[in-house]
Amino acid sequence: MRAVIGSALGLGLLFMLTLASIDPVDLALGVTLGAVLVALLGRRLRLAPDGVAVAPIQRAVWFPVFLGAVFAEILVGTWDMALRVVHLRDLKHPGVVRFPIGERSEHGVAISALATTLSPGSVLLEIDWERRDLVFHFIDVSDPDRLRERFERFYDRYQRKVFP
């Protein structure tokens, strides 16, 4: 029940943001629409089970750090991609690599995949739950083990404290 009310309120807020209005009538309309949507679709949307619980304060403190780290990755990736596009770095070793999932929960896998895919130079192709692998396409896989090590280090340093 709490989840339903929370989702309806969240959707109502999104509605307000989209309209950029502060009219209470709009808020009521948004929350009503959200509640109807959740009531209609709630059963069909399977929400991922929460894995490991994180203290809200810890999450609130580390989330901006995590966002900053992801943004830095995007900047570096875009710069690297730009150099490759204009022939200043070579484009000889693109390829598909497997990364082990490790200790990530279901949420953690989703956030990891999203963050890695958002930075240019890497795209998630597949999640292999049987072998517990993430399949990525990288623009440069001349050294796959170094890539895996970087992926793990990013998780350890920034993500573990927010989305384990």
């Binding site: 484009l91 598909v96 796959p144």
Partner: peptide, 9 residues
């Protein structure tokens, strides 16, 4: 299409 591409799958 790149001849030296790697594919671990």
């Amino acid at each position: 299409h790149i001849s030296e591409a790697v594919d671990e799958t």
